[in-house]
Amino acid sequence: MLRTLISPSITRPLTSNKVVARAFSTAYIQRQAVTATEDKSYTHILTETKGKVGLITLNRPKALNALCSDLFTEVNQALKTYDSNDNIGAIVITGSKKAFAAGADIKEMKDNTFVDTYKNNFLGHWAEMIEIKKPIIAAVNGYALGGGCELAMMCDIIYAGEKAVFGQPEIKLGVIPGAGGSQRLVKAVGKSKAMEMILTGNVNLNASEALNLGLVSKVVPIDDLVDEAVKTAGVIANMSQPSVQMAKEAINKSFEVPLSAGLRWERIFFQSLFGTADQKEGMNAFAEKRAATFTNK
């Protein structure tokens, strides 16, 4: 089972720090106007709020959380709900102890034709999650194969349980990764290892290997994984949200634009944050040797 996503690079024109600050402020106000409530009617996922953290659990245990189209639609809906909720500052996505996601739902896609997949932009809706402004942490236990590995890589941080397994075996099905595997994996583990994994379909990374290669940030005991991810998400959620979200966008820009353009984006974001109350609070708190209290303004 595997799945995929085509993640388009989105490059916006460079602008002044005042325009960036005003645009961020407008977007923030618009999100405040949205009354977001969790939808309890999901079929393939579970959602839960833990303090300022939104938790999404993939819930197709009999299929090892195979990523059918409807499941990913629900993931997108939950992510957008959390993104528009001002009480939430970060999001965690996890699966079961046996499988984060064993891949895409092969039974769902096996009879597709080229015309169908092209006209309907098959898997295109997976790309919606890269537009989420709030940081997303993947808490990966068990199998993260094919689309499961790609889903994890679409998140901003990956924590792995001790028995996690990462791989891209699509070649065995006569296809290639289609949800970013050939693009994101090489940036995470290097060309040679990515080529070996994708071209053979046989080489999977265990948690320790994934950590050593830089695919994951931390390896955690299985039973502690979700709590550790939620803990880190909570730390992020208590930071200034304008700073957090601009930092996320600046880092993602580094994969999309030349270094000179990325440096300019970083500098503009940095300058723009001097128009926020949180910058004043953060720097004054440092000077006064006290903890900062951010208001996300």
Rank of each mutant, 00 (worst) to 15 (best):
M1H: 14
L2C: 12
L14Y: 11
S16C: 11
N17C: 14
V20D: 10
R22Q: 13
Q32S: 06
D39A: 07
E48N: 11
N59R: 09
T73G: 15
Q77E: 06
T81V: 03
G89N: 04
V92D: 06
S96V: 13
K97T: 11
K97S: 14
K97R: 12
A104I: 05
A104F: 05
D105I: 08
K107C: 12
M109G: 08
T113V: 09
T113E: 02
T113G: 07
V115L: 14
D116G: 13
K119S: 10
N120T: 08
A127E: 06
E131Y: 15
I136C: 03
G142D: 12
A144V: 06
G147W: 15
C149L: 08
M153N: 08
M153C: 11
M153A: 10
I158P: 04
Y159P: 04
Y159G: 05
A160R: 00
E162N: 11
A164P: 07
P169K: 11
P169Y: 04
K172Y: 14
V175K: 00
I176N: 04
P177M: 14
G180S: 08
G181F: 01
R184W: 02
L185P: 00
V186W: 00
S192Q: 05
I198S: 05
T200D: 12
A207V: 02
E209C: 10
A210K: 02
K218R: 06
V219H: 10
I222T: 15
E228F: 04
V230C: 07
K231G: 08
I236K: 05
S243C: 09
S243P: 10
V244L: 02
Q245V: 10
M246A: 08
A247L: 02
I251R: 11
P258G: 11
S260I: 11
A261K: 00
Q271T: 13
F274G: 01
G275S: 07
A277F: 05
D278G: 06
Q279R: 11
K280I: 08
G282Q: 01
N284S: 03
A285E: 01
A287I: 12
E288K: 08
K289Q: 11
K289S: 07
A292W: 02
T293D: 09
